[in-house]
Amino acid sequence: MNERDTTNARTAPDEQHTDSADEKFRSWTESSGTGTVNIKDMTKVYGTDGDELTAVDSMDLHIEAEEFVTVLGPSGCGKSTVMECVAGYLDPTEGEVLVNGEPVDGPDPSRGVVFQENRLFPWKTVTENVRFGPQMRDAVDQSRIERLFDQMGLEGFEDSYPHELSGGMQQRAELARLLANDPDIMLMDEPFSGLDAMTKELMQEKLLDVWEDDDRTVLFITHDVEEAILLADRVVVMTARPGQVKDVIDVDLERPRDIDMVTTDRFNELQRRASESIHDEAERAMEQAEGRA
């Protein structure tokens, strides 16, 4: 608690501290490169001999720096596994994942993650959550945090605990926590799937704003066809398990985008194509799930 008070009360020595923190921050972001992701012939098998489950099978995917890619797939197709390998939580069984040409070695603040269920730390206030990343490097920049609160519309909830926020606001706070770290790559695993339809649209627009403002690489997992097309430069359609790339759809809609675009002819055309592509896979995934039960 005291920690937070001292940073709020900004005195001269603190100012100085912020300057050096800024420097630390800059040198840290500059060193972390541009944000290309290269998934090469990646296979991920869970379990051991006799009881194996191949989640992803020889997948290849290259993501350019500052590109927005959505991965669209039926449930249980291993799309989360792809994300977990890029995040560095899991090691691929075969093949490799390169980020900026280097093999991924564990989680790293240059690769920020937003989870499907809200994972704000319930025991920290919103401010403590948003400050968490910079705090870990001793590089808290209070004015930057304030800007993020402003950008995400979180003012007035600085000292609230996550459970006191609405679902949409929790997701905005989690996004703010991620942005406070200024990651090159944002990994998002169905982040909006738990929200109601209207909040979801608002969050999609917010995300587009954020992304169009300061160009980061985004790998966004979803099972929602409309969401996949609305957000992405490219939509990668995955097959049912074992997951492979089935289809890649270039989304040539102009930017900046907003939710009204979903009624245009071009959008509908792309949506039909993606839906057809995923339909059979969804059926197969359902059969798999029934077989397991």
């Binding site: 989680p107 603040p109 993650v113 994972r119």
Partner: peptide, 28 residues
Amino acid sequence: ETEYRRAAESLGASSGNVFRHVVLPATL
């Protein structure tokens, strides 16, 4: 929940910080 640890790690927390900021409060 594993994802709390993962979230902390992805935000740059060392294992000591994961213990202090995640394990301890979550076990309380």
